[in-house]
C-alpha cells in the first residue's frame, strides 16, 4: 500500500530524517515509536506532503513525493495530525462534511453524504449527539473522535494517526483505541505514531522504532514487546509519561 524508501527530510536547516525506509501493507496496522524529537511527525508530514522531502514515497503504486498535500489527501492517504486540528468554528457535522472533500473532491454542493455520516455516527455515537455543537467547545476525547471521523468521511485508503492518545484520560484512550482497532479491522490500513509504546505495540501488527531520524528497530509488534532494549528505552518511561498526560487532562 505505502512504500517509503530512503526518505530524507529537513526541518529548517537541520536534517530531521536521514534515509527512512518503511512499508505499510494492505489491512495492516503499523506503529511508529520513538521519543520526542525523533522525527515521527516530520515523517508523517513528509508523507502527507506538508513538508518537503527527498527519496521515494509510493502510495497505491504511484510516486507521490512531488504531489501537493491536497492532491495526496484526495488520493485517499489521510493524516489525522497531532493536536487533532478540528475546525474550531464549524459544527461537528460541518467538520465531517468538509472531510468529504478528500473522497469526493472540491464541489459546490455537498451532495448526499448520509452513508458516510451514518458510518461515522455508528462508530462514534457521541458525535451524533453533538452534531450541532461547535467543535472548539468539545472535550479533547470528543475532538479526537471528530478528527478521526472527519478522516473517515474522506473514504481513506490509508489512515495516518499522529499521537491519538495525547492529552486524553486513560479511560478515554482505551475507548478510542477500541474504535481504532475496529476501523483497521474494517479494512483500512493504519500507520500510527504513538508515544504510549505499550499500547501501540499491543494493537499493531508491526512496528518501527525511530531514533534521531533513523529507524533502529523493526519487526512484529509482539516480538518488539519482548525485546529487552525496547522494554528499557520505551516501556519503562511510559509509566511517568502517562501520569503527565492524565494531569493535563484534569486541567481542562
Amino acid at each position: 500500500m505505502l512504500k517509503i524508501e530512503n526518505l530524507v527530510s529537513h526541518y529548517g536547516s537541520i536534517e530531521a530524517l536521514h534515509g527512512i525506509s518503511l512499508q505499510v501493507g494492505k489491512g495492516e496496522m503499523v506503529a511508529l515509536i520513538g521519543a520526542n524529537g525523533a522525527g515521527k511527525t516530520t515523517l508523517l508530514n513528509s508523507i502527507s506532503g506538508t513538508v518537503t522531502a527527498r527519496g521515494s514515497i509510493e502510495f497505491a503504486g504511484k510516486e507521490i513525493l512531488r504531489e501537493k498535500a491536497a492532491s495526496i489527501a484526495r488520493m485517499g492517504l489521510l493524516q489525522v495530525p497531532e493536536g487533532r486540528h478540528v475546525f474550531p468554528g464549524l459544527t461537528v457535522e460541518e467538520n465531517l462534511l468538509v472531510g468529504t472533500v478528500a473522497g469526493k473532491g472540491l464541489r459546490l454542493r455537498p451532495g448526499d453524504n448520509s452513508k458516510e455520516l451514518e458510518m461515522v455516527y455508528e462508530t462514534f455515537p457521541r458525535l451524533k449527539e453533538r452534531r450541532q455543537q461547535l467543535a472548539w467547545s468539545m472535550s479533547g476525547g470528543e475532538q479526537q473522535m471528530l478528527a478521526i471521523g472527519r478522516a473517515l468521511m474522506g473514504q481513506p485508503k490509508l489512515l495516518m494517526l499522529d499521537e491519538p492518545s495525547m492529552g486524553l484520560a486513560p479511560i478515554v484512550v482505551e475507548e478510542l483505541f477500541e474504535k481504532i482497532v475496529e476501523i483497521n479491522q474494517s479494512g483500512v490500513p493504519i500507520l500510527m505514531v504513538e508515544q504510549n509504546a505499550r499500547l501501540a505495540l499491543k494493537v499493531s501488527n508491526r512496528a518501527y522504532i525511530l531514533e534521531r531520524g533513523r529507524i533502529t528497530a523493526e519487526g512484529a509488534s509482539a516480538d518488539l514487546l519482548q525485546d529487552p532494549k525496547v522494554l528499557e528505552a520505551y516501556l519503562g518511561k511510559m509509566v511517568s509519561g502517562k501520569k503527565d498526560s492524565s494531569k493535563r487532562e484534569e486541567k481542562r
Partner: peptide, 13 residues
Amino acid sequence: QDQYMSSLVGIPV
C-alpha cells in the same frame, strides 16, 4: 480557521 488541516482533507488552499 486552519490552512494546514484544510490541505490534509484535500482542499486546495
